[in-house]
Design a binder for these strands. Structure first.
Length: 359
DNA sequence: CTACATGATTGACG
DNA sequence: CGTCAATCATGTAG
């Protein structure tokens, strides 16, 4: 930065104030202050070239002399005025910069993802997880995965915030530095407050572009985390015993038409503490797998057929029918095993049958 | 570790 | 849109 100061003092000196008796190398060309500006250019260039050869002491001396010149304040203010005008005219071209849509998108996403939100740390996060588990669809395993997910998210969040803080600090530090320099220089060369302001704006833009990279990579990390944790296929849990029992019960007691209606699915979902789509998945899998290999499911079918038969018997208080365990194949379910699953009349499978097994 | 069981996903189909 | 069929990826019994 001393170079620049030196340069400026040199240039200001060139523009007409150089009669000050600063050094002996000016002595030879005193005459250029009046008259032909064309011819001066050569001298000026010479002088510019000479500046690099000058020592810092010389420059300092020159600067000092310059500042002490009696005409300096007046000329300086004129220069400031001129510059103000030109700067203003330049500024007119590109005045208001629109907020970057890209960065706004990233901001929104980080906010939505809870990375840049107001809430901080464990307590409220845990509370949110608990609330989600209590209110939401999957009370069993969901909370565990959620807490794991939350932990990772908090980690990302921590990194993001510390980095962001570092950026902000660096930015303000740098801005301060530049402002100090400009203020310092404004004693030597014309710098309007607006110019400083503009410079600060430029610095902030630069830093925000760096910030955007940070935000972008944070977003990416969150997306990856999300896809990892929300891809349920990776975190498949088998349903618990009771749930499969309920499902199987329904399946085998509706073997002739194992297509639960939407309401039936909802009911089953509620009973099994799973979602409706999980019920649909289960029935889809069950139907296809049953059809593929009926023999393999024979035992299971018998078991549930007996179970429902017993239930029905206990309801109708007629126990005499249920005492043929020796040949179950020809018994209760022989007709249902031979039923074609393909046929599915969609009208009458109400939940009345489940109801009396349940109650 | 292997083989099988099982919940979820995907693409085709009506 | 719901279902089928194939397939994936994980869970689990041996």
């Amino acid at each position: 930065m001393e170079d620049q100061a030196r340069m400026m003092s040199g240039l200001v000196g060139l523009s007409g104030l150089s009669q000050v008796d600063v050094g002996d190398h000016d002595a030879g060309r005193k005459q250029h202050s009046l008259g032909q500006p064309q011819q001066d250019i050569g001298d000026i260039l010479q002088q510019i070239m000479a500046i690099t050869d000058e020592s810092l002491d010389e420059a300092q001396a020159r600067k000092h002399a310059l500042n002490c010149h009696r005409m300096k304040p007046a000329l300086f203010s004129v220069l400031c005025e001129i510059k103000e005008k030109t700067v203003l005219s330049i500024r007119g071209i590109q005045d208001e910069d629109p907020p970057d849509p890209q960065i706004m998108r990233l901001d929104n996403m980080l906010l939505a993802e809870g990375v840049s939100g107001p809430e901080k740390g464990g307590a409220s996060a845990a509370a949110a997880a608990v609330a989600a588990a209590a209110a939401g669809g999957s009370p069993n395993d969901g909370s565990i995965e959620h807490s794991d997910y939350r932990a990772k998210l908090t980690q990302i969040r921590g990194i993001y915030h510390s980095e962001l803080e570092k950026y902000e600090q660096a930015c303000s530090e740098f801005t301060n530095h530049v402002m100090n320099l400009l203020r310092e220089q404004s004693r030597t060369r014309p710098i309007s407050p607006k110019e400083i302001e503009r410079m600060v704006g430029i610095i902030h833009r630069k830093f925000s572009s760096i910030q955007m990279q940070l935000k972008q990579s944070t977003c990416e990390a969150v997306m990856i985390l999300r896809s990892r944790f929300l891809d349920a296929r990776r975190k498949r849990r088998n349903f618990n015993k009771q749930a499969t029992e309920v499902l199987n019960e329904y399946f085998y007691s509706h073997l002739s038409n194992p297509y639960p209606s939407e309401e039936a699915k909802e009911e089953l979902a509620k009973k099994c503490a799973i979602t409706v789509s999980q019920v649909s998945n289960w029935f889809g899998n069950k139907r296809i797998r049953y059809k593929k290999n009926i023999g393999k499911f024979q035992e299971e079918a018998n078991l549930y057929a007996v179970k429902t038969a017993v239930d029905a018997a206990s309801v109708s208080s007629q126990a005499s029918q249920a005492n043929s365990p020796a040949t179950p194949n020809s018994g209760t379910h022989s007709d249902i095993t031979h039923t074609h699953i393909r046929v599915r009349p969609r009208q009458d499978h109400s939940r009345s049958d489940i109801k009396h097994t349940q109650s």
